[in-house]
Amino acid sequence: MPETEGPAPRTEANAELVALLNATWFAADLPPQAQVRLASLARRYQASAGTTLLAEGQLANELGIVLSGRVSLRTLVPETGWITILTVEPGDVFGWSALVPPYRSTSTVVALQPVDVLALDGPGLRAALAADHDLAAALYPRVLQALARRLTATRLQMLDLFAR
């Protein structure tokens, strides 16, 4: 868990969270009701560079949206050390494991710079998506897009193009 102060203080005004969401690639232009619903599940936190936001294998309780700063997704390779597989830039998401069983993180997420993150509560989001089909219909394509983009990128990286 991120070293933020205290558990999920949802103190900010909902309207401000809606505005922040709307400024991200992930949630921009979603139907207003969906944005409001997401805002109700959101908390915002900051973390300093070097902070581990989520560890590989740990329960992923939140879907994070990077508002500013850069986070890295890493994995530990025996005899090599930590390898950064991907960095997540402002607007994009991390912690998609919070939506997919067994809800455990597939990599370790570390802030490379001071980061500003909007985090959506995992169990709450799952419940909302299960109950609210309009929300699900609006949100799942975004999740799918994010994953597809990451998948194609991973393939290109696997090709090790520049080794040639």
Binding site: S72, R74, G81, W82, I83, T84, T87, Q113, Q157
Partner: peptide, 11 residues
């Protein structure tokens, strides 16, 4: 494409 933990740029 890939980096160790000391790289602070994009991957």
């Amino acid at each position: 494409d890939r980096a160790d933990a000391t790289w602070l740029g994009r991957v």
